[in-house]
Write a protein that binds this DNA or RNA. Structure first.
Lengths: 340, 340
DNA sequence: ACCCTGCCTGCAAGCGCTTTCATTTGCAGG
DNA sequence: CCTGCAAATGAAAGCGCTTGCAGGCAGGGT
């Protein structure tokens, strides 16, 4: 089909009988032009079906009204919620989301980051603290403001919004110990390239240590995020180090997998086995008994990351670190040890 | 911090002792320049930390290497999986994803589409068939190729990749009728602005009709996607039109909600109540009994949508319509009527 | 020795918009 | 009716890159 080339602002200007400059102003600085002129231009725009050429505008203004985000697998519900929230927040401000996702691969993350910077992202959001040094260096050199989401950075060098996975994890472990549990197992998320999973695991270890308990290596299994993996991991724990009375999942799907495996084996929860998770996905509250877990405000993190970035781009300053609440939600899957 | 302005290609050229044109070619048409020249340019790039300016390139080439996608809530796991797959597919080809999501709001969809077109998306993917007429018109006028994902378009006007929700839904209903069910209820997804939900509902209706059965309005409840809503909807059905022996959820979360509500009320599944869903999210297969549902290949749809768009951008032609399989997966939540 | 071929390289003209600066216009006041 | 000032408009110079075209240079044929 022989399309006529898309109309340019010049065509609009001609149709409205004004200069290019005026047409431009009528659209982007409406109150710099007289009302009737503005209307004529708008009419011409509508008539011609004019759509501004973003690249040209970006070249001239050095702004793309675009924010980049590089996320671990977006199909993890926890990131999906944040992505949606972020996209909503941005679009309300006339910004658009440039999204890249990787499978916990730092080199891929760097490549994606570069791609987004090349495309002119005005700001970026990254997840967690595990990055190749080049990744952040690239952002700094290019002068692109960024927010680190999910984790809290101790160094004070980066803007970030999240919570302490270590502290939250300690709350989970203490809750279990308060119920009398002494033999605890962990199904950790993949700790490679994932500081959140590492900190959660470390939190359990430290909490136990603080009461003189140990977390032996055989009581820890790593598995990547899924219910099926949770089941398998739980079976593995049972096989290699039985005798524990509680299991902590590095995230809810893993914990739910453990829970299902208990059901399948006739292990009563919480009578014979307490199970706790992390993230508080919707399902956690809908199971019966409900899953004890840590509420991670992922949508709020997405919103707030967007808000902070937009504020910074507007020249406002924001506190370097924003800590979000991550309360322990006690439901029915955890109970006193040994209680039938 | 007083940043030096980002280096431009001109700086690279100067550092490498070549012209702007040669530097450009060294980077984007490597085998148009002699090897040693190319190396000198690359060296200069590395030394200066040069990052190409996408907007400038886009302006000159009229290509952004960017694909836009406008999705319903990305936090629906089914779309999240597709988003991830799409992003992966694109990035492998050097493309990046511009993502917008809306909450089943056609005006928002149009606005998002416009935003992406303005930002120069080389191609677009939209979900389903419910759009404002302006949305597709905009794409056509701007000459942006697009793929419609999830649904199959009957008109033959649009490129699309998906499956027949109507037909798949009929398979579910027939399966239930084959098990002897005559009184069937439906928890439909929100049918407003959502042809998938409508077609799924219509499929059940038509399947029943084809065997002389009716689906009275009081046997249908609409609810938006979530386990909690599924539970509530199931309760409502029970209250307003008891006596049904099977319930079909418009998507898995709704079906799982019904399932949980059955458990909570001591209704045996499938003994007293058969439950079927739609989408085959991971959980469906992990429950016990497993949820009978329709497998929707969402990741494959994401991949294939990307592949098709990239192929078209590369000048290849692809069949206008790509139908994906959406088989019925029979698991344990459906059984013969009345069997205890 | 001369011309022609090919391969590299460089010049310069855009790509479509914004924005500075200069100019014109409109209007109140003298 | 003219002056002066503010407001509205216009001309033109980029923003940083690609690319068509032309020029330069080496090597082979005559």
């Amino acid at each position: 089909m022989p399309r006529t080339p898309n109309p340019r602002l010049e065509d609009v200007a001609r149709a409205a009988g004004v200069s290019l400059a005026t047409a431009s102003r009528a659209l982007s600085e409406p109150d710099m032009v007289r009302e009737d002129t503005r209307d004529r231009v708008r009419e011409a725009v509508a008539m011609l079906g004019y759509v501004p050429h973003g690249a040209a505008r970006a070249l001239a203004t050095r702004r793309t009204k675009t924010i980049g985000a590089v996320f671990p697998p977006v199909d993890n519900p926890i990131f999906a919620g944040a992505t949606h929230a972020l996209a909503q927040e941005l679009s309300a401000a006339g910004y658009t989301l440039l999204l890249a996702s990787h499978d916990y691969d730092l080199a891929a993350e760097l490549a994606a980051t570069r791609a987004l910077v090349e495309r002119g992202a005005d700001g970026m959001v990254l997840v967690g603290l595990d990055h190749l040094p080049e990744t952040l260096a690239l952002l700094v050199r290019a002068g692109v403001p960024y927010e680190i989401a999910w984790s809290l950075d101790g160094s004070g060098h980066h803007n970030c919004i999240g919570f302490s996975h270590h502290a939250a994890s300690i709350r989970v472990a203490q809750h279990l110990m308060d119920l009398g549990h002494r033999e605890i197992a962990v199904i950790a998320g993949d700790t490679k390239c994932n500081d959140r999973a590492r900190e959660r695991l470390a939190g359990v270890k430290d909490a136990l240590a603080s009461r003189g308990l140990k977390l032996p290596a055989r009581r820890v299994v790593e598995a990547s995020f899924s219910v099926a993996n949770g089941r398998a991991a739980f079976s593995k724990l049972l096989a290699q180090a039985p005798g524990f009375t509680a299991v902590i999942g590095g995230n809810d799907p893993l914990a739910i997998g453990a829970l299902f495996e208990c059901r399948a084996r006739g292990i009563e929860v919480p009578g014979q086995m307490s199970v706790a998770g992390f993230d508080d996905i919707e399902l956690a509250g809908e199971l019966s008994p409900g899953l004890t877990t840590v509420r991670v405000p992922s949508a709020e993190i997405g919103h707030e990351a967007g808000r902070r970035l937009l504020a910074r781009l507007a020249g406002k300053s924001v506190p370097r670190v924003k800590e979000m609440p991550a309360p322990l939600i006690v439901r029915g899957t955890t109970g006193r040890v040994g209680k039938r």
